[in-house]
């Protein structure tokens, strides 16, 4: 960030201060900047030491005691003078302290914090509303498409299940045929027996492939379904209060 950018960002964030106060702040940092340059520091270093311009602005605003300029359309509300609480620890509020402490401590900080809270409330509301919108949308889409989405999802499950069963069946059948094939091989029907042996092995192989494939598909599909469900019907953990 350059000095120009830093200053620009600072100015942007204190724009609600009266013009003369803004000028004072900028003069202060300008002077500080020049003195640091003179002592040999680099622009980058100086800006880094100044810190984040938004934080600096926050600090200035929170310490400012007086009226802020209105945000367009607002009517400025004069801040009632507050009793300043003793704030220098053991060094303040002394009877023989000739300095007259009249500056109020809580100034804009309250307003800034209140605004932040309002923003949080809004965000929370938004998440719950978002969830409700998603559910509503889901229902509408289903009604429109004759629940096609749900039906397709269910059918996919059924098909997967069916293929798994088929696979198991093939495997079992193949295994049985394999065992039985040895009979004919030794009782004269060698050719037939061998053929059956081959087929049974193939069946077992196919069955295994089918079952493995289906199990994997089922696992993936289960994850997908769960994600979809969570995405639509559930509010994520961070959003739940």
């Amino acid at each position: 960030m350059t000095k120009y950018e830093w200053e620009h960002e600072l100015k942007k964030n204190i724009h609600r201060l009266p013009a003369d106060e803004i000028a004072r702040v900028l003069d202060y940092y300008n002077e500080m900047f020049e003195d640091n340059i003179e002592r040999g520091k680099s622009e980058r270093e100086i800006i880094r030491e100044f810190g984040n311009p938004v934080d600096v602005a926050d600090k200035i605003l929170s310490e400012y005691d007086g009226e802020l300029l209105p945000i367009e359309g607002d009517i400025p509300v004069p801040r009632p003078p507050e009793d300043k609480p003793a704030d220098g620890g053991i060094f303040d509020g002394h009877d023989n302290n000739k300095c007259d402490d009249t500056i109020a401590d809580k100034s804009v900080k309250d307003t800034v914090e209140q605004k932040k809270n309002e923003q949080n409330e809004y965000d929370k509301l938004d998440e719950v509303d978002k969830r409700n919108v998603k559910v509503a949308l889901f229902l509408v889409v289903n009604f429109v498409t004759g629940f096609a989405f749900v039906i397709v999802a269910a059918v996919a499950w059924i098909v997967l299940a069916a293929f798994t069963v088929a696979g198991v069946g093939m495997g079992l059948g193949g295994a049985y045929a394999f065992i039985v094939s040895f009979g004919p091989m030794f009782t004269g029907g060698f050719g037939a027996g061998l053929a059956q042996l081959g087929i049974s092995i193939a069946l077992v192989g196919l069955g295994v492939i089918l079952v493995v494939g289906c199990v994997k598909s089922i696992r993936t599909y289960a994850k997908v379904t769960k994600t979809l469900y969570n995405g639509i019907f559930k509010v994520s953990k961070e959003e739940r209060v």
């Binding site: 202060y28 500080m32 003195d35 030491e49 810190g51 600096v56 600090k59 200035i60 310490e63 500056i103």
Partner: peptide, 30 residues
């Protein structure tokens, strides 16, 4: 002046430009 104040007290207590500004303002106001 600002820069000098910071360099004079830095050895004793931590102070930054943005901390000094409100302090100067307050001391002037009081």
């Amino acid at each position: 002046y600002g820069y000098k104040i910071i360099s004079d007290i830095s050895p004793y207590i931590e102070i930054s430009e943005s901390t000094l500004y409100p302090i100067l303002k307050r001391l002037e106001a009081t």
